Computed example of a mutant assay.
Amino acid sequence: MQLENNVTHMPPTPVISLRLFVEGIERTLWLKLESYSPYGSIKGRTALGLWRDVAERVDPDVGIIESTSGNLGLALAALTAAHRVPFTAVMDPRTSASVLRSVQALGARVVTVDQPDGAGGYLLNRLAYIEQRTDEDARLVWPNQYANPANPGVHARWTAPELHAQVPTDPLCVLIAVSTGGTLTGFRNFTADSGCGWELVGVDLVGSAALGGSTGPRVLSGIGASRRSRYLPHGFNPAVRVTSQEAVSTCLWLLRTTGIALGSSAGALVASALRLFREVPHRVDAACVCPDGADRYTDTIYSPEWRRHNGVTEIEVADGVRVISPVCSAPEIATVGAPAGKAEP
């Protein structure tokens, strides 16, 4: 437990602010950069919560298995390597090749499930594979990020209070990307228990069933799901759904205008924040809990070839938006090789 205790006492992940004019009204957009979390993403926090929940049940000769689109797998691979426990990461073809190689470099076994599940993704078939494996060997532990209360619990006790201490603005609109729904549920529970008065907004992809609705083709990893969130069986209100084009285009716009390089889920959050700013003139402060940075997406959303292959065309997302105080020194800029203010070829 000493490893986990040291990690959870790390300094808070940074929050940076962008001052914007949106259709003539000054707004502040707060970005909480979870790329500075343990293991490089917000899923590092989730992994610690899940590990603490199952550690006493883990057979050191058999280990654990988990379904993951990338970030949780990387965090669990690091944790299990530190504890010398076998880990099998069940992934799919949308996982970034660089993330997959990193998971393997940490000694984890990667199983790629490449059969689409008929609901716009691969999740249902990844879960079917895990159920088959755990049926075959009862010693194999599945932390189950999709239904384990430890997932939302770690965000209610750690991530949400951390943001509240950093951005005491009231009122504040807080946007959370949804895949399992664990982070949003944790923030909802914190908001209810603390009475802080946040306006929480769930952000999902078009074609995702995570918050309900019909499924469809999706190309982004880390946001959206082929089934409804087990933590939010009745959905969530308010919720915003964005397209892959909006999310990716927002990432590219942010990089070129501010030097900030974020992952695709964060792009979806910022796109949603801009939409909400336009819709409600009195909404002047919004915070995006950005799950990761651009380092996980150099061979996907920041790759022109990947975008062409997946039919993700860049669109206008910042009409009527002017950045007043851009941040041009974010460390993530070096990971994508496109200096702020220069268009990517």
Rank of each mutant, 00 (worst) to 15 (best):
L29Y: 01
L33H: 08
D53V: 11
P60Y: 10
S37W: 00
R45F: 12
I42R: 06
T46G: 15
Y39D: 05
T46P: 13
W30P: 00
Y39L: 09
D59R: 05
E56N: 11
V58S: 02
S35R: 09
W30D: 07
S41D: 03
D53R: 09
Y36R: 09
R57A: 12
L33M: 13
D53Q: 15
D53L: 09
W30I: 09
K43P: 01
Y39H: 14
L29K: 05
E34N: 07
W30F: 13
L29I: 08
W51Q: 11
Y39P: 00
D59K: 08
D53N: 15
G49I: 01
G40A: 14
A55Y: 09
D59N: 11
S37T: 07
L48D: 01
D53I: 14
R52C: 09
V54A: 12
L29P: 00
E34P: 06
T46V: 10
G44L: 04
W51E: 04
R57S: 15
L31W: 00
L31R: 04
G49W: 02
R45C: 10
A55T: 11
W30Q: 05
V54C: 10
P60L: 14
L29V: 14
Y36T: 13
E56R: 12
K32I: 09
W30Y: 13
L33I: 08
E56F: 11
V54D: 01
L48Q: 02
P38Q: 12
L31P: 00
V58T: 02
K32T: 07
P60H: 08
Y39Q: 10
I42Q: 07
I42C: 13
V58A: 04
K43F: 02
R57Q: 15
E34L: 07
V54S: 07
G49C: 15
L31T: 03
K32L: 10
D59P: 02
W51N: 04
S35H: 08
W51V: 03
L33E: 03
V54T: 06
L33Q: 07
Y36G: 07
I42Y: 14
W51T: 03
L48K: 01
R57F: 10
V54I: 13
G49S: 11
W51D: 04
R57P: 00
S41I: 10
D53M: 14
Y39V: 03
S35K: 14
K43C: 04
K32D: 03
V54W: 04
L33Y: 06
L31S: 01
V58E: 00
L50W: 01
A55M: 15
Y39T: 06
A55F: 14
D53H: 10
P38Y: 08
W30T: 04
E56C: 15
S35I: 07
W51C: 01
E34G: 05
G40N: 08
T46S: 10
S37M: 13
V54N: 04
L29T: 06
T46W: 06
W30S: 13
Y36L: 14
G49T: 06
L31A: 05
L33D: 01
L29S: 05
I42T: 12
L33K: 07
Y39G: 01
L33N: 01
E34W: 02
S41T: 12
P38N: 13
K43L: 13
K43I: 06
L33T: 04
R57G: 05
L48F: 14
W51M: 09
Y39S: 11
L50H: 03
E56D: 12
R45H: 13
P60Q: 13
R57V: 12
A55I: 09
E34M: 12
E34Q: 13
D59T: 14
G40V: 06
R52T: 09
K43S: 05
S41W: 02
G44H: 04
